[in-house]
């Protein structure tokens, strides 16, 4: 069972509802939670559900931001980013896929950091951001590498994806994977875990947090998830994972990392969520569904 990285920065301040956090000297966690409840037309009033909408900044010799957050986050995200970069330029923005909570602020970021380039599967982005010069949209495919000076970022085909073209990113120095929509978790407002990592929670709260995975992937029961879990295990053998991040989760690391991974993979193999509205009913929402 891996220990926490020796240089991990434990909670420096009370972050209930608040980010950014410098998680490691070279890893900043930015973004915030969105209210994921409030379904129009529902008779019952549901408790406020937080959907983490996160982005990360790797502060290597060059800097890269993993995803951008959604439109509504911009007015807090901009200041968070400035605080974490401390005057450094943002060199790259990794766009995991086109969905708004993941890359909605790409245009704003590239306008704010005029030397930054977007990297990822950048097909279609010229349609959504015609203001961006095409040479700032750099296509990456599975296996491509980006040199940050002190590490490489490896782009990996996402095994679970909602929009086609989703890529994951792997930091070779930190052995960190940014898994887009995979390993996302939602929580209730009353849990008070915004901005808190799994290893900072007591055991009961950590267990509760892992009970609400956000898996917004259509058709999970319509095909064999066992084969995909096996593919993920092969990925981890090739790219050892010590930190998991995603667009919808706090960083997962340390002694709770492996159990969290195993719990989710087991759930996928044994009881994948029903996300086709045609067979799910009740507006197609399972408790773990968040968006899509």
């Amino acid at each position: 069972m891996p220990d926490l990285p020796k240089d991990v920065i434990q909670k420096a301040y009370v972050v209930r509802g608040g980010l950014p956090r410098l998680v490691l000297p070279d890893l900043a966690w930015v973004g915030g939670c969105s209210n994921s409840a409030g379904w129009p037309g529902r008779a019952n009033v549901k408790p406020v559900t937080h959907e983490p909408c996160m982005a990360y900044v790797v502060l290597g010799q060059k800097t890269i931001m993993f995803d951008t957050g959604h439109y509504g986050l911009w007015y807090s995200l901009e200041g968070q980013l400035e605080a974490m970069l401390q005057g450094r330029p943002l060199d790259y923005v990794f766009v995991s896929h086109q969905e708004i909570p993941h890359t909605g602020n790409l245009g704003r970021l590239l306008a704010k950091y005029p030397r930054a380039k977007a990297v990822g599967d950048v097909r279609d982005y010229h349609l959504f951001h015609p203001e961006i010069a095409l040479d700032r949209l750099v296509m990456m495919q599975h296996g491509d590498r980006l040199d940050l000076g002190d590490r490489e970022i490896v782009f990996l085909d996402a095994i679970w994806k909602d929009l086609s073209g989703t890529l994951w990113a792997y930091d070779t120095k930190r052995r960190l994977i940014f898994s887009a929509d995979m390993f996302g978790y939602i929580h209730l407002a009353d849990d008070h875990v915004c901005g808190t990592m799994l290893h900072e929670m007591d055991e009961a709260l950590a267990a509760k947090s892992l009970e609400r995975p956000a898996l917004p992937f259509t058709g999970m029961r319509q095909r064999d998830q066992g084969a995909r879990v096996a593919a993920f295990r092969r990925l981890m053998a090739q790219f050892p994972v010590e930190i998991v991040t995603s667009g919808h989760t706090a960083p997962i690391m340390g002694p709770r990392l492996q159990p969290a991974i195993e719990q989710l993979l087991h759930a996928l193999e044994t009881s994948p969520p029903r996300f086709l509205q045609s067979d799910a009913g009740d507006h197609g929402r399972d408790p773990g569904a968040t968006h899509g």
Partner: peptide, 18 residues
């Protein structure tokens, strides 16, 4: 005229971007 999910409205609460 909206038939989606309430949480999505929060994402797009500032949809104009530029």
């Amino acid at each position: 005229l909206f038939g989606g999910a309430g949480g999505i409205l929060e994402w797009i609460n500032d949809p104009a971007v530029s």
